[in-house]
Design a protein around this nucleic acid. Structure first.
Lengths: 195, 195, 195, 195
DNA sequence: TATGAATGAGCCTTCATTCAT
DNA sequence: TATGAATGAAGGCTCATTCAT
C-alpha cells in the first residue's frame, strides 16, 4: 500500500464489472429520462446496492460527468480517425452525421447540466477538458474542409458544435423515421456548404 | 348568477389577474432556470401564495403546459399575421427567424413533459390543439414558399418544427453573441432554400 | 405582503403551537440523547411531519442553535435578575448554582457542536451573540463579587463559564443524588472563593 | 499447537502489531474528532483495511471501549505509582492534575457509549473491571490524603472521578492557554482541600 | 377565493457491518 | 488472516400537493 494514492491500483475484477454495469445503466437511464433520474434507479438497473454506486462515483455529478465525458471521448476518437481521410469535405460531413447520430438521445447531456447547481461546476471542469480534445480534433477536420472549399469559410468550431447539438435535438424531435432524419441532416449539411 | 352552467364560469377579475401573474412569473422563471424550478419560486415571483398557484393549475405539469401552450399560441399568431405577406419566401424566413428567437430559452418546455405520467394526458390534449393550429398556420406559410420556389419542395411542416426547435437549441448552446446567432440561423435557413 | 421580508409577520396560531412543540421535543430529545439525535425522532415526538420541522428550522443546525440559544437566554435572565441583589457574593454563588443546575443534562450542547462540521459554523455565530449577552450579565455579577472580596480576584468570566460547564458535566457524571450534587457544587464554589 | 484451548490463543505477531496500530490510530482520531469519527478513517490512519479493524474489534463500540479501557489502565498505573509517595497530599493532587491533563480530549469517551445498546453489555463488563481497578488505586490515594488532612474528609472516590471528568471538560472549554488551565485546575484543587 | 402551514414521499449521501477474494 | 468491495439502513433536506384557517 503506497503512502500516496497517486496511482490508484487497478480495480478488482468484480469491482471493474460493477463499475462497467453502473456506467451502462447510467447511460441508458440518463439517455431515456435525463440526468435527473435518480441514482437509486440506476443502482436498481445495474443490479447493485445504492452504496456501490457511490463507492465508484462519489457524487451524482461525478457519475453524470463520467457518462458525459465517455461520450465525448468516443466522438473525439471518431474525429481523429477521420483526420487523414483523402477527401476533406467528405470526412467532415461524415463526422458531422455520425456525431449527430450518436447524440440523438431523448435528453442531451448538456441539457442536463444545471448551471445553477453548484455541484455541477466540477462537472463542467472535466467536461471542458474532454471537450477541448474534441474541439482540437474537430478543428483539424473543419479547417481542412474549409481549405478544400467544401465548407463555408466563416464557420467556427463553436458553430459546428452548436449545430451538432441543435441538429441532434431536431432529430430527436422529429422521431425515428430514417428518411426524415436524413432530410433534416441534409438541410443543415447543405447550409454548411459553400454556396 | 352564472350565464350557463355548462361552460366554466368566467373568473372573477382578481382571479383573472392572479392567473395572468402566475403565468407571467412561470414564463420568466422557467425560461431562466428551466422547468425544474420550484413552484414556490413561481408563487413568490407572482406575489401569490402557493395555494393560489395550485388553485389555478391543479398540477405543476398543468402549469408548464399552460406556459407552453401560450407560447404556441403566440407563435401561431405571428404565422397568421404573415400569411398574406406579398413575398412568400420572405414571409416564411421571417417567421422562421422570429420563432427561433422566441424559443431561445434555456430549457425547452417539451423536455419537461413526462409522457409516461397519466396526469399529463389532459395536458397533451390542450397542447395538441394549440399545436395543430400552429401547424395549420405554418403549413400555409410553407406551401406558399415552396410554390414560389424559395424553399426545398421535399420539406414538411414537421421538418420545419423540428428544425426550429433544433436551431433554438443551437443558438442557446452558442451563447448570446448576435453575429454568431445570425450565422447559425443563416446556415439552417440556407439549407432550407432550394439550391 | 411587503416587498421586503424584513419583518417576518407573526406566525399563525397553529404554526406557533407547532414551533413550540418542536422546540420542546428537541429540548427533551437533545437533552436525553445529545444533538446527534435524528430530526425524524424530534418530529415524531412533536407529533408533526418531518417537513414541518424543516419549515420552522431550515437546517438541523438551526434547530440545535435555537434550543441552545433559548437556554442561554434563560440563564442570562437569571443573571440579570440577580444583578441588583444586596449581597454580591451571595448573588454570584446563587447564580452559579442555578446555572449549573439548569445545564445538567445528559449531553451539554457545547459537546454537541462539532467544529469540524462546516454547517455548525453558523450555529456558533448565533450562539456567540446570545453568549455575549450572557457574558455581560455574568461580568456584572462577577466583578461585584470580586470587589466585595467574595471571589478570587484573578478569575475571569471565561473561567466561570468553563467551570459552570465543567461542573455541570461532573454532576451529570455523579448521578442524581442531591447530597452528592451539593457536595460537588460546594467544592467548586469553595475553590472560587478568596481563601 | 496452542497451549490450551480454553484461553483465547495468543495472536500471531503481525496480528498483534495490527491490533496495536488500530488502537493507536483510534486513540488519535477519537481524541481529535470525537468518537463519531468514521471507522474507515481509523483504518486509513492505521494503514490497514477496514475489514481488519472489524476482525479485531467486532463492533465500533468495542473499539471505543478498548480505547477507553486502555486509558483507564494508564491512569490506574499512575495512581499506583504514586501510592507510596512520601507526601500523601502532594501525591493526590499530582495524580489529579495528571489525570485531568490526560483526559483533556475533545470528546470524552463516556459520551460515546450508548447504554441502551445490548451489544454494549460485554463492553461495559470490561470497562467496569478497569474502572474498579482505577477506583481502588484512587481510593488508596484519597484516603491517605484525607488522613493526612490535605483533603476534605467528606469527599468520596466517586466525587473525585466526577470532578476529574468535569475539570477536564472545563479545560477543554477554556482552550489551550496554560495559565488559564492552571488557574482552573487550581480552583477545583483548592475546593478539594480542607479549608 | 386566497393563504401558507403541514404533509410525506423521494432524493443524495454516509457509514457500520458483512463477505467473497 | 487481511483485503476492500458490496450492502442497506438511516439521515438531512426538498418540494409537489393538501387542507385548515
Amino acid at each position: 500500500m503506497p503512502p500516496t494514492e497517486s496511482a490508484p491500483r487497478p480495480l478488482r475484477s468484480d469491482a471493474q464489472r460493477n463499475r462497467a454495469r453502473i456506467l451502462a445503466a447510467a447511460e441508458e437511464i440518463f439517455a431515456a429520462r435525463g440526468p435527473s433520474a435518480s441514482t437509486e434507479d440506476i443502482a436498481r438497473r445495474a443490479d447493485v446496492a445504492i452504496g456501490t454506486v457511490f463507492r465508484h462515483f462519489p457524487t451524482k455529478a461525478a457519475l453524470v460527468e463520467a457518462v458525459f465525458a465517455g461520450r465525448l471521448r468516443a466522438i473525439t476518437e471518431q474525429a481523429a480517425a477521420l483526420a487523414g481521410a483523402p477527401d476533406p469535405g467528405e470526412a467532415f460531413f461524415a463526422f458531422f452525421a455520425e456525431a449527430v447520430r450518436q447524440s440523438t438521445v431523448k435528453h442531451t447531456f448538456v441539457d442536463a447540466i444545471d448551471d445553477a447547481d453548484p455541484a455541477m461546476v466540477a462537472v463542467w471542469a472535466v467536461v471542458a477538458t474532454a471537450g477541448a480534445d474534441l474541439r482540437d480534433a474537430m478543428d483539424t477536420l473543419l479547417v481542412r474542409a474549409q481549405r478544400s472549399g467544401a465548407v463555408r469559410p466563416d464557420i467556427t468550431v463553436g458553430d459546428v458544435v452548436a449545430l451538432m447539438i441543435g441538429t441532434a435535438r431536431a432529430l430527436e424531435q422529429a422521431g425515428p423515421d430514417p428518411a426524415t432524419q436524413d432530410r433534416l441532416r441534409s438541410v443543415v449539411a447543405d447550409g454548411l456548404r459553400r454556396h
